[in-house]
Structures are given as C-alpha cells and as structure tokens.
Amino acid sequence: MRAFFAGFTYAVGLVLVVSLVGFTLSVPPRVLFEELLSEEVLLALKLSLWTSLLATAVVFPAAVLVGYSLARFELPLKRVLKTVVDLPMAFPELLLGLVLLVLFSDLLDPLLGNFSPVFSPAGVVLAEAAVAFPFAARVSYAAFLQVDPRYEAVARTLGYGPFETFLKVSLPLARGGLLAALVLAFARAFGAFGAVLVFAGAVYKKTETLPIGMYLNLSYGNLERAVAMGALLMAVSFLAVFALESFQKDGVARFGGN
C-alpha cells in the first residue's frame, strides 16, 4: 500500500524533474550561459523582479485585509462578495488584461491626466497585481479560517482592543498561511503573461518581463534565448516555493492527540 502510493508519487516527481532538466539541457550549456548573460535576458529578469515584488507589496496587504474580513465577519451578500474576489482566478489572464485596458484607456483615462499605465512598466505592475490578487486573497482567507476565534476572544478579555488583537494575535497565528499567500502572490505575479501582454504590451526591453521575453523570442525564432528565459523563470519560482516549503513544518497526519 505505502510502497504503491509512495512509488507513484516519486514517479510523478521524476517525470517533472526529467522534463524540466531535459527542457533546460536542450540548449548546450555554453550557449545557455551566453544567453543568460545577454543584455535582453538580464533586463527582462530585472524588470520581472522589481515589477512582481512591487505588485506583491501592493497585493499582499490588501489580500490580508480582505481575507480577514471574509473569514471573521458576518457580512451582507458575503457569498457574492467572495465570488467576486475569487472570480478572476477563473478568468483567462487575457480577459483580465482586456478589462484593465478598457478601464484605463477609456473609462479612467480622463481622470489620470498625463499618466497612462498602458504599454508601460507601471502597466506591468498593475497587470501582475490583478493576476496575483485573487490567489493571495483566497489563501489568506483560508489562513485566517484556521485561527480559532476564541484566541481573539481571550485577547479581548485580557484588555486588547479589536485592532490590537488583530496585530498581536490573529496575524501571528495565521503566519504560516499568510507566508504562503505572500509567496503565491509573488509567484503568480512573476509568471503573469496574458494580462501583461494585453495591458502593458510586449515592448522589446521596455515591458519585456521574462514570460513576455519568452514569447517575443519564440516569435523571432530565437529558441535558445526563450529556453534560457524559461530556465531563469523556473529557477526563481523554485527558490520562492522551496523557501516556503522549508518554512512550513512537514505534515504527516498521525494517530493520537497530544
């Protein structure tokens, strides 16, 4: 039984590793190395990193607030509210980008004056944030649901006001799940493609993030450079997710309580 399940799991892991390594090694190491150090790839990496870090910085606090209020309060129309927050997860990114494009180039344009995020790095941040938000909100909602509200009740009777209780008790107790929300927000932002393409465009060396760069190089027929960018994307994502896994305790359900 255990051998079967574990064997299957290792097989799945092996298939993934072989595919990813095979993908990377499809380009000779020397060429890969050169491509990785090319100006375009380094610019794309830099743009990807700062835009997705900024998008995460915007999205994460918002996700924490939304997650907490959905997990704690009886709200009118809560089911509708939750659906609306989660909905973009079900959208193709393309649609998200289109919504942003219409919103900013038509409806909001008169209000923004000279500032237009369309086809600019600011647009990249906005698009990445839109992609990342529902995932971060959903995970932080789940994180707060895990916190027994009676901890908060105890803190209240010990003299702490509601906001202080949130900071001193709810946040630290939801720490693990919130960390997952943070990493997921970054990973989704870092890998965002469709929304960025439609809203910020695929402008060479200007709005060229790693996913956009892969797309551009594929369309030029520069497969080596596309693979190099893909490998870089995998490496950064691997680091982020591995960091998260190392923070969280390895869980195995066991018999017995304490």
Binding site: V154, T157, L158, G159, G161, L173
Partner: peptide, 19 residues
Amino acid sequence: PPERRAVALVYQDHLLFPH
C-alpha cells in the same frame, strides 16, 4: 466592549498563544 469589562476567560482547551 470585552477589553473594558475586567473579566477574563479561561477555556477548557486553555488556548495559550502558541507563538
């Protein structure tokens, strides 16, 4: 509100702050 009542709760599962 609870924080101004000078009452304190103790539950059966103690609920000590784990952090």
